[in-house]
């Protein structure tokens, strides 16, 4: 039914309560945009979904398999590392800072995980790497190193690298925030293409225009809770909550 369910997620750093009961259910093929002010916990939430942070409480279920389940006394119990590695493989993640491997060529960046983790034969991995690069419009950059690419190109490579693992869900954490404005378009276009191919996507973004155009659902997060959610139209054009309105007017003013 749901491809991803996160229920009642809690997470604190020291005594800072960053996530205070976040729940998100995503259907296959859905594109969910998460917006919200800086420090509201958006990245932390995505990082919990990708097992980069461990939750303090809550349940995360991906395609019917629990990554973490609330045990007795509200203490979360995680699956074994091996199981987690397997379940997590269904998730792809794209970072704000790309995090490409600088010592590896574009081709090697794309082939590394498929060969090491999925045990694909190198020829196979290379074939799909080339196909993915073609898809993000960078077929001519296979032999380049990340430092030779623009930010927008690097981020497109990072997207292709995540796709090379054939994830069922793609998470994006402000994929265009580190880019010069004139380079965001090319990255957003790749993401739009993905959405039109019915990739399930969770996108943390400040690009309200992108959210409006592509997202099936928009969540507004503030201070560790989801304040409001609904269709892009509902949340972005007719927000119910004052906090949402204040945030939107601030973001839209900034343009």
């Amino acid at each position: 039914m749901y491809i991803l369910q996160a229920l009642d997620i809690y997470k604190s750093f020291k005594d800072v309560r960053v996530l205070r009961g976040i729940s998100l259910q995503v259907k296959k093929g859905e594109v969910v945009a998460i917006i919200g002010p800086s420090g509201s916990g958006k990245s932390t939430f995505l990082r919990c979904l990708n097992n980069l942070e461990k939750v303090d409480g809550g349940t995360i279920e991906i395609q019917g398999e629990f990554m973490v389940e609330n045990g007795p006394g509200n203490t979360p119990s995680y699956r074994s590392e091996k199981e987690l590695a397997r379940i997590k493989r269904k998730m792809g993640m794209v970072f704000q800072n790309f995090n490409l491997f600088p010592h590896k060529s574009v081709r090697e960046n794309l082939m590394l995980a498929p060969v090491l983790v999925q045990k694909l034969r190198p020829v196979e991995a290379e074939k799909s790497a080339l196909a993915l690069l073609d898809k993000v419009g960078l077929a001519d950059k296979v032999d380049n190193y990340p430092f030779q690419l623009s930010g927008g190109q690097q981020q497109r490579v990072a997207i292709a690298r995540a796709l090379a693992m054939e994830p069922d869900i793609m998470c994006f954490d402000e994929p265009t925030s580190a880019l010069d404005p004139e380079l965001t378009g090319e990255v957003l276009q790749v993401m739009k293409d993905l959405a039109s191919e019915h990739m399930t996507m969770i996108v943390v973004t400040h690009e309200i225009g992108f959210a409006r155009e592509v997202a099936d659902r928009v969540l507004f997060m503030d201070e560790g809770v989801i304040v409001e959610q609904g269709s892009a139209e509902e949340v972005l054009l007719k927000p119910e909550h004052e906090r949402t309105r204040a945030f939107l007017s601030k973001v839209l003013m900034a343009r």
């Binding site: 998730m91 792809g92 800072n97 590394l112 995980a113 090491l116 983790v117 995540a162």
Partner: peptide, 22 residues
């Protein structure tokens, strides 16, 4: 950079692979 570990982690590399390859 910590991002290198995180990228390796989300791609499914184990600790040993992350150390030796990245």
């Amino acid at each position: 950079d910590r991002g290198q570990y995180e990228a390796a982690h989300v791609l499914g590399l184990n600790r040993f692979q992350t150390m030796t390859r990245i």
